[in-house]
Amino acid sequence: MEIERKYLIHQLPKELETFPSRKIQQAYLCVNPVVRIRRQNDDYYLTYKGKGMMVREEYNLPLTKEAYQHLKEKADGLVLSKTRYLLPLPNDLTIELDVFDAPYEGLWLAEVEFPTEDEANAFVPPAWFGEDVTFSSAYHNSTLSSGKKRG
């Protein structure tokens, strides 16, 4: 089960490059239900995500590089590319800050995953976070992969 909140970011934190990061490329084989393939540095995954916004099922299976390349040719829509920075928060939480490449350069989204719904609902974001878009499907990566305008 994945429990997360998602926020728009309007200004990146200073010294962002000092935090650990991962280069991510992902594509979607299906968006209802969500079936995604992802390359994260040199690791490859197939992910299934159930319905939901803040809380939903999520299953990850490892893929080989060859399987990833094969499935990428079958993907619908855009292949998304982004850099994910990992910023620590108190209580063993982590901000996953995604800085998107073209065609979404300038789009910055922060996600925070929680162990429980209560903790997610009680979360007070840092002052530099923008709007809470947890319940907006416009900012799901599966929606962005369609290439349709956000809003």
Rank of each mutant, 00 (worst) to 15 (best):
R22V: 11
K23Q: 14
I24W: 04
Q25I: 12
Q25C: 12
Q25M: 12
Y28H: 01
Y28C: 09
L29W: 09
C30H: 11
C30F: 13
C30Y: 06
N32D: 15
P33S: 02
V34F: 01
V34M: 01
V35M: 11
V35G: 08
V35S: 00
R36Y: 09
R36Q: 09
I37H: 03
I37L: 05
N41L: 09
D43Y: 12
Y45S: 15
T47S: 08
T47E: 10
T47D: 06
Y48A: 01
K49D: 00
G50Q: 08
G52W: 10
G52N: 06
M53Q: 15
M53V: 10
M54N: 06
R56M: 07
R56A: 05
E57I: 09
E57F: 10
E58D: 05
E58Y: 01
E58L: 07
Y59C: 12
N60E: 14
N60A: 12
L61C: 15
L61H: 13
L63I: 04
L63R: 08
T64V: 00
K65V: 04
A67C: 11
Y68R: 02
Q69M: 11
Q69S: 11
K72T: 04
K72Q: 12
D76R: 15
G77V: 02
L78E: 05
L78T: 08
V79A: 14
V79N: 10
V79M: 12
L80Y: 07
L80W: 01
K82A: 02
K82F: 02
T83E: 12
T83L: 03
T83R: 11
R84F: 01
Y85L: 04
Y85D: 08
L86G: 05
L86T: 12
P88Q: 07
P88V: 04
P90S: 05
N91I: 11
